[in-house]
């Protein structure tokens, strides 16, 4: 994984894992990699992974079982809810940026339709 050097690694990995969970790549009940394995994979300090897992646990997206393994929550509805929150947050931030550049809602949605559309065509 490539990391941006001026954003906390912790937040970058947390976001990455959230996306994996939301997209279903890490489906409900999937076992997450061990702290050591993920640290080696990402080439980061394992203490960072510890923080990431702690944060995801607190958000109830993952849980720890008796063997100390980390699993994605089985609550699909909850994930959906969190996914919507994610969309809402990102959209709000995106909208703010576009507004600052003087672009209005209409131009933006039109462009988004084109971008998503061309992606659909490519598939």
């Amino acid at each position: 994984m490539d990391f941006k050097s001026n954003e906390t690694i912790y937040s970058q990995i947390t976001e990455y894992l959230k996306k994996q969970i939301f997209s279903g790549s890490f489906a409900c009940g999937t076992r997450l990699p061990a702290i050591r394995d993920l640290a080696v994979q990402c080439r980061v300090n394992p203490n960072t992974i510890v923080r990431v897992y702690a944060a995801l646990s607190e958000e109830k997206l993952i849980y720890t079982d008796s063997t100390n393994g980390k699993f994605v929550t089985a609550d699909a509805a909850y994930i959906l809810q969190k996914k919507r929150e994610f969309l809402r947050e990102k959209s709000a931030a995106f909208a703010k940026e576009m507004r600052e550049a003087g672009l209005d809602g209409g131009e933006v949605t039109e462009m988004l339709r084109k971008v998503f559309g061309s992606e659909e065509e490519r598939r």
Binding site: S5, N6, T8, I9, Y10, T48
Partner: peptide
């Protein structure tokens, strides 16, 4: 280091 990055600075910076 994470405190630096939270400020938007890299270690190199």
């Amino acid at each position: 280091t994470e405190a630096l990055r939270a400020q938007g600075k890299s270690v190199e910076d």
